[in-house]
Design a protein around this nucleic acid. Structure first.
Lengths: 334, 334
DNA sequence: AGTGATCGTCGAAGCGCTTCGACGATTAGG
DNA sequence: CCTAATCGTCGAAGCGCTTCGACGATCACT
């Protein structure tokens, strides 16, 4: 492996000149620069990441902490991950993958060892124990999600409250006034991730604002869970004409069950789903949906981290506005 | 951030002694060792990863290259990823995540910059262009999958040919002799990943060995794809009594379609699926399945990489034997 | 022509760690 | 009791890079 001094010798300049050509931190004449680049190409030189990190205390690596729980929506996580990796590369950064189960120790390990410049943490809970730990690190961090108290750490997420509001507004626009929320499974509410609660709060508030009659109920996984949930809705709010479904796993069994009961969508029942695009379009009925913009959120998390590294932008919370995509599952009240 | 010399001073020893306590590469007395460890704990010392990498030319990081194509099975990929990360941590390594779309350049970048000790590459194709590139790196690598010519690189995968054989043997054991393979979508065969072809070859060979009548057909995604595939099977091999399904996405629409046609499983038709455990058990009929041991393959890939790093074990190919898990979808020939 | 600025380059001092050779102090063997 | 091996520790030399101060050369104004 050639070193920077091999390049310097080959180009007939000093090491520092090579370094400045690479970093652009000082002006270098066009001819010198060209000679250096030629030498670099010819020798196949790559700066040694460790040496660079040691000398500059910058690593060009971002840590990304992902949940590996099974009850979480795996394809959505993967969308975040690829968005983060792809965006990071645009800023010449690589991504070190940590799992949530290492907890606080993992964060302290990679930050303490100066393995990363910044951290992006997914699946944060209401009172996540990792938040105080992140605050103690010398590296900045970005949360994907919204804890009860961000404690000065930057947060990025979809605005779930506004999303619920939009879903209801959309249905109200079609003339519906009895709407039920099919929520996530109870375990999602129990573990402290806040998005389910924020959605529910938004739903409740908007219901009042719009003067609708609504109920909300969590929905256990599987066909049985869906049946139970529908039964509950039937008894609590008879004459419900529309559903907001904030539960990806329930979608398939729900449509199955409605078909089995001979209830057509959107003829008898309108549905707005909260899910990624591809899920909404891959079902037998193309669902009108509020998009989960995993890609955008991941990208924004990286951009926020980069802004923090450059010292521009103070940490703060950034909630992305919802997007309703109209498809075939919402009709007028019949 | 305290450095090793802070620790040395606090413990009243030299830097090298601290280093030897940490690495265990030379004997250190119990008392000295204890004093050093106390100082480390008290100061909250973490060795600087870059400095360590520079001095030792070891990084304690593994590169993992994942595909981000959408047509690939995302949850299975995530299982590989978490298995790799978890196994790597057991060997005190971290994982740097690369995406396949960076291609050869990504490999050369992280290897050339000495960011990683070894590379694990998923989703390798028959004549993957990355293989010659990997051969040129100074770091060892492990492929998950089986290219036409591994060119001296270690490979790890499920033995798909043997898996096909086991599926057929299982069905033959139940008395079936007309069996159809519902294969992956044509795009899987077209792009060069070899597992689909290996499965098909194993299926064909075993069919002959066992004296069965079989047909095989790829299956486009979605309910329409399933219907077309079933129609094809009906016409090519009337009287088929069992299906081997090597296509996860087809499972749900397939069971739907069969139910719609009033064909019971396993009463009228037996099914062996090739898929991860959780998929097989989450369907309306618990499917007898050949397991996709993503976790084991990922773990083995890491262990192989570690063995390569330590110089024990020459690279070679390791194919995991299949496991058939009996559930409710196979019955005797009626 | 004289005076600052600015430009382009160099030399050298580290960044924090590992590792090799050296060396005194034990211990074992004859 | 002497020699040789072993044990436990230290000092110092790098690993490859960035960055700061310095310095001659060029340039733009008076």
């Amino acid at each position: 492996m050639p070193t920077i001094s091999d390049v310097a010798r080959a180009a007939g300049v000093s090491m520092s000149t090579v370094s400045y050509v690479l970093s652009g931190r000082r002006p270098i004449s066009a001819e010198t620069s060209a000679r250096v680049r030629a030498a670099i190409a010819e020798l196949g030189y790559h700066p040694h990441a460790g040496a660079r990190a040691l000398a500059s205390s910058r690593t060009s690596v971002l840590a990304l902490v992902v949940p590996l729980r099974a009850d979480v929506n795996v394809p959505v996580i993967m969308q975040f991950v690829t968005a983060v990796v792809t965006a990071a590369r645009r800023y010449h950064h690589d991504v070190l993958l940590l799992t949530k189960d290492e907890g606080t120790a993992g964060l302290e390990r990679v930050a303490g060892a100066t393995m990363v410049d910044a951290l992006i943490v997914m699946d944060v809970e209401g009172d996540d124990v990792r938040i105080p730990a992140l605050g103690r690190l010398k590296q900045p961090s970005v949360l994907i999600g919204l804890p009860d108290d961000p404690a000065g750490i930057a947060c990025v997420d979809l605005d779930f409250a506004a999303t619920a509001r939009e879903c209801l507004a959309h249905l109200a626009g079609h003339g519906h006034h009895r709407v039920a929320l099919v929520g996530p499974s109870p375990s999602v509410y129990e573990r402290g991730t806040t998005y389910a609660q924020r959605f529910l709060d938004g739903f409740t508030d908007a219901s009042a604002e719009l003067g609708l009659e609504t109920v909300a109920h969590s929905c256990e996984p599987g066909a049985d869970g869906v049946r139970d949930c529908l039964a509950w809705i039937d008894s609590e709010l008879p004459g419900t004409t529309a559903l907001v479904v904030h539960n990806e796993d329930a979608l398939v069994p729900l449509l199955d069950e409605l078909r089995a009961r001979g209830r057509s969508v959107p003829g008898d029942l309108s549905i707005v789903a909260v899910c990624p695009r591809d899920v909404a379009t891959s079902l037998p009925v193309k669902l009108t949906s509020a998009d989960i913009p995993a890609h955008d959120v991941g990208t924004l998390a990286v951009e926020t981290a980069m802004a923090l590294l450059e010292g521009r932008k103070a940490p703060g919370t950034r909630l992305l506005p919802p997007t309703i995509i109209e498809r075939d599952s919402c009709g007028p009240l019949s």
